[in-house]
Design a protein around this nucleic acid. Structure first.
Lengths: 114, 114
DNA sequence: TTGTCATTTGGTAAAATTACCAAGTATGGG
DNA sequence: CCCATACTTGGTAATTTTACCAAATGACAA
């Protein structure tokens, strides 16, 4: 029964949810190349610094990243890089969706014309 | 610049978002064992059938599952099982979060008591 | 055709997410 | 000590998500 395992699914979904935002996904992927301070994200992302800080705190709360204050700066670090392994498969899905949707478009076009 | 790659991050986040709900994650994982009709999910999950149907349609729209009508029933099928590979890593994160948070609790206890 | 089973769709209220601004905290320099 | 820099936090409005009920659709059976 799903009810028994619900807590585990909630925990897993919570982690996915933290990653399921374009900006947060970008941040996590950037951290694959090494730690970054908030100020670096601020330079790259066109959003208010408070928005960026909140996105990072969501990743942190989910346990995906950790932070460390050094001087005036706060550095974020990817704790568990394996969580980003889904990327390759996601790209496959995106490509397959594009294919299916473009062939659907063609079908609609053809149906219109005939 | 993030702005250039934004479309790709949005597409990837869209797929994650579809999975980032306990019920939808459960459904996708169940489909690892083979296709299932909506009625089977209805038996397992304590939610309105319309809610279950809508969750399935979100997974379908994201390109994670496909559906096929056979007789009166609609069968759902996992198109790209690799998208669920993150699970193992997610469990690692959950365990590590539990450890950190329980040690935090202990620390708070200790601080209170001393 | 009429009914029934299996599922989807439309509508809606409640809850959650998001982004911004403004104000607060912490650190190091002068 | 005072100030600037680097962030975080609180407040809030707009948007999105979620779940339910009710009604619609589609397939088969009588």
């Amino acid at each position: 029964m799903y009810e028994n395992e619900k807590k585990l699914y909630e925990a897993k979904a919570h982690i996915l949810k933290a990653l399921a935002h374009p900006t947060r996904l970008y941040m996590a992927e950037q951290l694959l190349h090494g730690e970054k301070c908030v100020c670096e994200f601020v330079r790259e992302i066109d959003a208010d610094i408070s928005t960026i800080s909140k996105h990072l705190s969501i990743l942190k709360e989910a346990g995906i990243v950790s932070d460390e204050k050094r001087g005036k700066q706060v550095f974020y670090h990817l704790k568990t890089p394996c969580i980003l392994q889904f990327t390759e498969c996601a790209v496959d899905i995106i490509k397959s969706n594009l294919k299916e949707r473009s062939s659907l478009m063609t079908r609609i076009q053809v149906e219109k014309e005939t």
